[in-house]
Design a protein around this nucleic acid. Structure first.
Length: 439
RNA sequence: GCCCUGGUGGUGUAGACCGGUCUAACAUGCAGGCCUGUCGAGCCUGCGCCUCGGGUUCAAAUCCCGGCCAGGGCGCCA
């Protein structure tokens, strides 16, 4: 069948702007076709757009045959433009409908669709991700990304209000920034380069220029992890602040989390309801648990973690159960933290660093950083790294880099926590994991 | 990478343990029909499936082995 052109038609109204008050007006609405119901003498279809939906009603006796024919040819999820008169009708959903005077079929969707976008039959996550563009039309998916959008906006508002400026650092880099995580090598002309696993080194350097910076950007980790909360490409919210310590940036983080939660709760009530998510805004100050206390509590609960090791997943789970909500784990052993971490003044075995947890999920980690070259070189060596390969970074420390502190917060994980999603892939439009490289 | 579980129409499931009665069921979907107020419309008719390869057996969706894929757990990691 031949499709119609958009031509000079433009939307005059979003579907939810059509209300009984608008009765008598001629409108042009555009959107996707939902249910088509043919009752013989009268035909209906639901037109949905980003704002909601409106019923288009065509009584056989009063409607042009050409229009009736077009309605018959519609398939679910096809895209149409409808010009017609708004009519108040008690029998219609929302008490209002449009009687079409002309319909343009802009694109026809195939049938059957790879999944049911109205969710009457639930599809597996894998099926959904394979047909992600269609899956993202589902109300639950839309809700997740609306919440993600709001969270990100709140993050930006808050950090800017704290006097931070937004920066962008290279994602193609020459060396690793963390000792642990594996890198994706890429071919950079005649040399090997890597995808950046963290903006860490750049944001530290920028505290010497802009004093307070933040970045929202992708980070790449070539880890083989295959879990519901890891991705190989993630979006990280990173801050770094001059003349500050871990405790200072902890406060920024705490305020930020409270702001994000309360703004999402206020502005995304509809979306939270779609997701059946009851969001509780954490109260300040968040509990602060030392690493030693965490280990003690875990041992009492039957989970043993040797001192000096990072918390494995089962331990994080148990701790999440024991504490719940948002809390900080502080005073980590230096061995668990990267080379740029400042040791505590009164106990150099411990790092002046923290993790922000929400339940069992690690949302953020940060701390005071080393700003003296000699100590940094010493710690690089202790981690088995070669200071020579960090020469271009180290030279920044010779020109008066101020003391500084910062953190990195995972946007995808933050979205998980806000939406209650059990798999991080739900919270990313087109996730990249161990096995998935498309779509 | 390891362990566990699974793979049945477009989608989601049942059947499998205990091989035959499976000509594979249900829901949704799709196609057609009836119906002038549907709104997860209803009713009627129809369409469409056993992941791939090998093995056991008179007989395999069902049992065994392997591949591929997926989900969960772990490790690694944020």
């Amino acid at each position: 069948m031949k499709l119609d052109e958009l031509g000079n038609w433009r939307r005059t109204h979003l579907s939810n702007e059509a209300t009984p008050k608008l009765a008598g007006a001629e409108v042009v609405v555009m959107g996707r076709v939902g249910d088509v119901r043919d009752l013989g003498g009268i035909k209906f279809f639901i037109l949905s757009d980003i704002s909601g939906s409106i019923q288009v009603t065509a009584p056989k006796a009063k409607t042009d045959k050409k229009i009736l024919g077009k309605i018959d040819s519609l398939t679910q999820e096809s895209t149409v433009a409808v010009k017609g008169k708004v009519v108040a009708a008690e029998q219609a959903p929302r008490g209002v409908e449009v009687l079409p005077s002309e319909i343009r079929i802009l694109n026809l969707a195939i049938t059957p669709l790879p999944l049911d976008p109205r969710g009457r039959v639930k599809a597996n996550l894998d099926t959904r991700l394979d047909a992600r563009a269609l899956d993202l039309r589902r109300s639950e998916s839309l809700a997740i990304f609306k919440i993600r959008h709001q969270a990100l906006q709140s993050v930006r508002d808050h950090l800017i209000s704290e006097g931070l400026i937004e920066v962008n650092t290279p994602k193609i880099v020459a060396t690793a920034t963390e000792s642990g995580a594996a890198l994706f090598p890429i071919s950079y002309f005649e040399r090997e380069a890597f995808l950046s696993q963290s903006p860490q080194l750049y944001k530290e350097v920028l505290t010497g220029c802009f004093e307070r910076v933040f970045e929202v950007g992708p980070i790449y980790r070539a880890e083989e992890h295959d879990t519901p909360r890891h991705l190989n490409e993630a979006i990280s919210i990173d801050i770094e602040v001059a003349y500050a310590t871990a405790e200072d940036v902890t406060k920024i983080l705490e305020d930020l989390i409270v702001k994000v939660f309360s703004q999402v709760k206020r502005t995304c009530a509809k979306e939270l309801k779609v997701l059946e998510r009851k969001l509780e805004v954490p109260r300040k100050p968040f509990p602060r648990i030392t690493y030693d206390e965490a280990l003690k509590n875990l041992e009492q609960a039957g989970v043993k973690v040797p001192w000096g090791e990072d918390l494995p997943t089962p331990a994080e789970r148990k701790l999440g159960e024991l504490v719940g909500g948002a809390y900080f784990v502080i005073d980590w052993p230096m061995a668990t933290k990267p080379f740029y971490t400042m040791p505590k003044r009164d106990d150099p075995k411990l790092a002046d660093a923290f993790d922000l947890m929400y339940g069992e999920i690690e949302l953020a980690s940060g701390g005071t950083r080393v700003h003296q070259e000699t100590l940094l070189v010493k710690q690089l060596k202790q981690k088995g790294l070669n200071p020579q390969s960090f020469e271009s970074h180290l030279q920044n420390f010779r020109t008066g880099l101020p003391p500084h502190a910062g953190w990195g917060l995972g946007l995808d994980r933050l979205t998980m926590v806000l939406t209650g999603a059990e798999n991080i892939r739900e919270c990313v439009l087109f996730p990249r994991d161990r096995k998935r490289l498309t779509p």
